[in-house]
Amino acid sequence: MSAPTATAPADLGALVDLLRGRRLAVLAGAGISTESGIPDYRGPETRHVERRPVQYDDFVRDATARQRYWARASRGWARMTGARPNEGHRALARLERAGLVEGVVTQNVDGLHQAAGSGRVIELHGALDRVVCLGCDVRLSRAEVQRLIESTNPGWLRLGAEAGRMAPDGDVELEAGIARFVTPVCPSCGGPLKPDVVFFGESVPKPRVAEAAGIVSRADALLVVGSSLAVYSGYRFVRQAEKEGTPVAIVTLGETRGHPHAAVALDARLGDALPALADALGA
């Protein structure tokens, strides 16, 4: 068995002792992608940042809300597509290849787990690289929609998004020019387009929740990485594990809503802790 890497947190031992010999369900939040350049919502550096994420009801009912969303998100997409998996993502993929991970339930919409090599990934909140028409339910790739935006807003995408802060969903802080932006519509029926992600105020589809719950039930331990567990969509799996007598371990920076339910909680950078954990568990 390999020893932990030199950058391993000093208190990694308790985490290793808890997880050794157990098959893991992994619940991942935005904190695992920060080292890839994608900000989180509630990490130590972003808790003070006021954000106004689009609400589902507003997006569906208000054409102006859709215009604002697509104008901002289309600029942020270049940053999202430029992100690459980091050592934390790759460590989880290593653990899966070693047969130690039942599956990854991710709250992220960036696709970086799959890009790192994880095979069993439940995208709890969907994925930004897919788009759905709210009128006829046709599915489009995000690349197709970006081309539609460029064709009706020449030069818009080339202006970039460097001047604004970006959220984990790719939305950037931008106001200039939005009133002139032409919102993309479905090429099949002319209906409104929505990224295939769960917006604030929207429910996670029940079959997806059931699939994620199955992963947690089949596992011997739940490992939470990079999530504050502030929203119920992820927190529910910590409560499920507790109810089923499955130990919970948390690795992230700062306190989380799940700390009272955790057998072990490690305050550490995931890019250090997860590779060290994979080494220590023999992956």
Rank of each mutant, 00 (worst) to 15 (best):
L229I: 12
Y232W: 12
T81R: 14
T256P: 01
A263M: 09
C186N: 07
R130S: 03
F181M: 01
R236I: 02
A262R: 00
I178D: 00
H261S: 11
R51E: 07
I38H: 05
W156G: 00
L12S: 03
E123Q: 14
E50N: 13
A3T: 10
V138E: 11
E150V: 02
D279L: 07
V238F: 14
A63M: 03
G214V: 06
A179F: 07
E211V: 02
G254E: 12
S203M: 15
L19Q: 14
R130I: 03
Q67V: 07
T246C: 10
L193Q: 04
T46E: 09
A14H: 10
L19F: 08
R90P: 00
R165K: 14
R236Y: 13
R158W: 14
H259A: 08
A8G: 12
D110R: 04
H125W: 05
T46H: 14
G31R: 04
L27V: 06
E202S: 13
H113S: 12
A3N: 08
A91S: 09
S203V: 09
G191R: 01
F181Q: 00
P4D: 08
R22P: 04
G191W: 00
S233I: 06
D196L: 08
V225G: 03
R139K: 09
G191Q: 02
A263S: 15
I149M: 03
R94W: 08
R120M: 12
L281C: 03
K243F: 15
Y56H: 09
L174C: 09
A276K: 03
R94Y: 07
A161F: 07
G43L: 09
A98W: 13
S217E: 14
E175T: 15
G282W: 11
G103P: 00
V224T: 05
P9D: 14
G190D: 10
D220Q: 15
S118C: 15
M1T: 13
G254D: 10
A3Y: 14
R84N: 06
F237S: 01
I38N: 08
A241L: 09
E50Y: 09
E175K: 12
D171V: 12
R147G: 03
P53S: 11
A283T: 01
D11T: 13
G135E: 02
Y69L: 01
G21E: 08
L157A: 00
L19S: 13
T252W: 08
G177S: 03
E87G: 06
T246L: 15
L193I: 08
G164L: 04
A163T: 09
L92N: 03
R257S: 06
G245I: 12
E173G: 03
R20M: 13
D267M: 03
S36T: 10
S227W: 01
L24N: 05
H261F: 15
L18I: 03
A179P: 02
L222H: 12
P184V: 02
A161E: 01
P207N: 11
G258D: 03
L277C: 01
E150H: 04
V172H: 03
D137I: 09
Y41F: 15
T183N: 01
A91T: 06
R72P: 04
Q146G: 08
G155R: 09
Q107I: 11
R269K: 12
M1D: 06
G135S: 05
G234Q: 12
R142V: 05
N108I: 15
A30I: 14
I149T: 00
E123R: 08
E175F: 15
M80F: 05
G43K: 10
M80S: 04
